[in-house]
Amino acid sequence: MGNSVAYPVHRTTDPAEAYAKARLLCGLLARRYEEVRVGAELSTVEDVRRMVALLPDAVYEHTDMRTHPETGETLYFGADVRTATDAELAAELPLDFTYTELPAAVAEEEFVRAVGTGPASIGWEGCWPDEPELGSYASPKYDGVQLILNSDECEWSRQVSGVHTVYVHVTKFGDPGRAERLAAAIGGSVLGEPERGC
Score class of each variant (00 low, 15 high):
Gly2Ile: 09
Asn3Thr: 09
Pro8Arg: 08
Val9Ala: 00
His10Trp: 11
Arg11Ile: 05
Ala16Arg: 11
Glu17Thr: 12
Ala18Gln: 06
Tyr19His: 15
Ala20Lys: 05
Ala20Asn: 04
Ala22Met: 06
Leu24Trp: 02
Leu25Ala: 07
Gly27Glu: 15
Glu35Ser: 14
Arg37Cys: 09
Gly39Cys: 00
Ala40Cys: 07
Ala40Pro: 03
Thr44Asp: 14
Arg50Lys: 14
Met51Lys: 06
Val52Ala: 10
Asp57Ala: 12
Tyr60Asp: 09
Met65Lys: 13
Pro69His: 08
Glu70Ile: 10
Gly72Cys: 09
Gly72Phe: 10
Glu73Lys: 04
Thr74Gln: 13
Leu75Arg: 15
Phe77Arg: 09
Val81Ile: 02
Ala84Glu: 05
Thr85Ala: 13
Thr85Val: 13
Thr85Asp: 07
Leu89Ser: 00
Leu89Cys: 03
Ala90Asp: 13
Ala90Met: 06
Asp96Gln: 14
Thr100Met: 08
Glu101Trp: 07
Pro103Ile: 12
Pro103Phe: 12
Val106Thr: 12
Ala107Gln: 15
Glu108Tyr: 05
Glu108His: 04
Glu108Trp: 08
Glu110Thr: 06
Gly116Ile: 09
Pro119Ala: 15
Gly126Val: 02
Gly126Asn: 04
Trp128Leu: 09
Trp128Glu: 07
Pro129Ile: 04
Leu134Pro: 10
Gly135Asn: 02
Asp143Met: 03
Asp143Ala: 11
Ile148Asn: 12
Ile148Trp: 02
Ser151Val: 02
Ser151Arg: 09
Asp152His: 03
Glu155Pro: 00
Trp156Arg: 13
Ser157Met: 12
Gln159Met: 12
Val163Ser: 10
Thr165Met: 03
Thr165Ile: 02
Val170Tyr: 04
Gly177Leu: 12
Arg178Tyr: 06
Ala184Gln: 11
Gly188Cys: 01
Val190Arg: 09
Pro194Trp: 10
Glu195Ile: 11
